[in-house]
């Protein structure tokens, strides 16, 4: 019992949380939904734009173009 209890604890201690991109693609791979890839990619780019658009730096960036 005690040995196994350590298993999950150990797993969380030695593991890092995967980043968003890796997670998304592992999901698509796991669920065999490759056909979602292009739309996920484009949405991620959009995400970047939206995050920048909502940041303190947004007005600077938009004076740049």
């Amino acid at each position: 019992m005690i040995k196994e209890k350590k298993d999950f604890q150990k797993l969380t201690e030695k593991s890092e949380q995967s980043g968003l991109i890796l997670e998304l693609f592992s999901m698509l791979k796991h669920n065999k939904k490759w056909w979602l890839t292009p739309i996920v990619l484009v949405l991620l780019l959009f995400g970047l734009l939206i995050i920048l658009g909502g940041s303190t730096y947004a007005p600077f960036i938009y004076t740049l173009f």
């Binding site: 959009f46 939206i50 658009g53 909502g54 947004a58 938009y62």
Partner: peptide, 14 residues
């Protein structure tokens, strides 16, 4: 200004 830019992106680009 930021929220203005934010809404332009959201309501125009999306």
């Amino acid at each position: 200004l930021i929220s203005l830019i934010d809404s332009i992106i959201v309501w125009l680009f999306l």
